[in-house]
C-alpha cells in the first residue's frame, strides 16, 4: 500500500516489527516504517477495539500508538527508527507494566 520511490537514497536501518525483521530507512519515523512494511493498521482502540493506523503523521491524532523497545503507547510518527529497534503493534489500552522494566 506504500512503496519507496526509486530516487530515495538513504541508509537501511534494521528493525523488527512484531518480531519479524524489517529494513527501514534512515529518516523514517516508526509510523513510516510500519506503512513501508505494509502495515496500514498498527493498533486497536481502547474504547471499542477498532483497528487504527497512522492518520496525520504530525503528532496530532494519536492513532499511530505502538510499543517501541518495550515502551507502550508511543506516537510512532514522532519517533525516528534506530538500528535494532523493536516495534510492536498494540491492542487496546496499554498495560500498566513496562515489559522492559
Amino acid at each position: 500500500m506504500f512503496e519507496r520511490l526509486p530516487d530515495a537514497t538513504t541508509e537501511p536501518v534494521a528493525v523488527t516489527i512484531d518480531g519479524a525483521p524489517f529494513e527501514a530507512r534512515a529518516g523514517d519515523s516508526v509510523a513510516a516504517a510500519l506503512l513501508a512494511a505494509g502495515r496500514l493498521a498498527s493498533r486497536t482502540t481502547p474504547a471499542s477495539g477498532a483497528p487504527r493506523g497512522p492518520f496525520c503523521m504530525m503528532g496530532v491524532c494519536f492513532d499511530c500508538l505502538v510499543e517501541i523497545d518495550g515502551v507502550p503507547s508511543q506516537q510512532g510518527c514522532t519517533v525516528a527508527v534506530a538500528p535494532g529497534m523493536r516495534i510492536v503493534t498494540q491492542r487496546g489500552a496499554r498495560a500498566a507494566e513496562d515489559p522492559s522494566s
Partner: peptide, 13 residues
C-alpha cells in the same frame, strides 16, 4: 483549590 491529572487509559490494574 485542588488539582487533578488524568493519565492515558490503561488496562484495569
Amino acid at each position: 483549590t485542588g488539582e487533578v491529572m488524568v493519565l492515558e487509559r490503561m488496562r484495569r490494574f
